[in-house]
Simulated assay, not measured.
Amino acid sequence: MDIKVLIVDDHAVVRSGIRAVLDTKPGITVVGEASDGRSCIKKALELKPDIVLMDLSMPNGRDGLYTTSELLQSMPEVKVIILTMHNDEQYLFRALKSGASGYVLKSAPISELVTAIKQVQQGMVYLQPADTKKVIQAYLHGNAEDAVDRFETLTEREKEIFTLVAKGYTNKEVAELLTISVKTVENHKGNIMEKLKLSNRRELMEFAFKRGLLEFD
């Protein structure tokens, strides 16, 4: 029986490219595509994929890791492979903590992605050799938890506000976009700054940039 794959990425060209290649691989069937976190959950519940290829950076305050955690709460039998451009150990540890079973760079050859899909389907965790070394070193030094990004402590609403503020939206503009009061935005911003241990807007921008959260739609 073929491995059923759902591709989740906010760029249609990326989804089409991955699908075109995987459609030529025996034993793998792409059953659908999704462009963001919400549609991912909906499509997964409808199509029942075995594997979800999940982009890391997505819009609307639901990045790939948040979506992975949410998906696995509803469908724990599904396996998620994070497919990303970020070769960063912070993202790697966050991916593993969210429940992902694999972490593959978009720059990797398609043969590696196919290998990851097959290994994860068999119940294994797939990491590139360099990533495996990072995980082992972190475990030996007892600092894997320290490497997990504080961003995951934010609520979904706080993530939405954080992303908009980082992109330069004013409190009034954020309030209008999210249909909430300016006072509510200010309160959320205070909570965000406290949770992320940030002191000013410059630090907030740096935090967002380092974590790849400033990808404009």
Rank of each mutant, 00 (worst) to 15 (best):
D2F: 09
I3L: 15
K4I: 12
H11N: 14
S16V: 08
I18F: 13
I18W: 09
A20S: 13
A20L: 14
A20F: 12
V21D: 07
L22Q: 11
L22S: 10
D23T: 06
K25G: 06
K25I: 15
P26Q: 14
T29H: 11
V30E: 07
S35L: 09
D36T: 00
G37P: 01
G37A: 00
S39Q: 14
C40L: 11
C40T: 15
K42M: 12
K48Y: 11
V52K: 02
L53Q: 05
M54S: 04
M58L: 00
G64N: 03
T68S: 07
Q73V: 10
M75C: 08
H86M: 14
L96S: 06
A100P: 08
A100H: 07
Y103R: 14
Y103S: 10
Y103K: 14
K106W: 13
A108Y: 08
I110F: 14
I110V: 10
T115N: 14
A116V: 08
Q119N: 12
M124R: 14
P129A: 03
P129N: 07
A130T: 08
A138C: 06
Y139N: 10
Y139G: 06
Y139I: 13
Y139K: 10
L140A: 15
G142H: 09
A144H: 09
A147L: 14
D149M: 03
R150W: 01
E152Q: 04
R157L: 03
E158W: 01
I161M: 00
T163V: 02
L164F: 05
A166P: 00
A166M: 01
K167A: 06
L178R: 10
L178K: 10
L178H: 03
V182E: 15
K183P: 00
K189V: 04
K189L: 15
I192G: 02
I192L: 07
M193D: 09
K197L: 13
K197P: 00
N200V: 05
F207S: 01
F209C: 02
K210V: 05
R211S: 00
L213H: 01
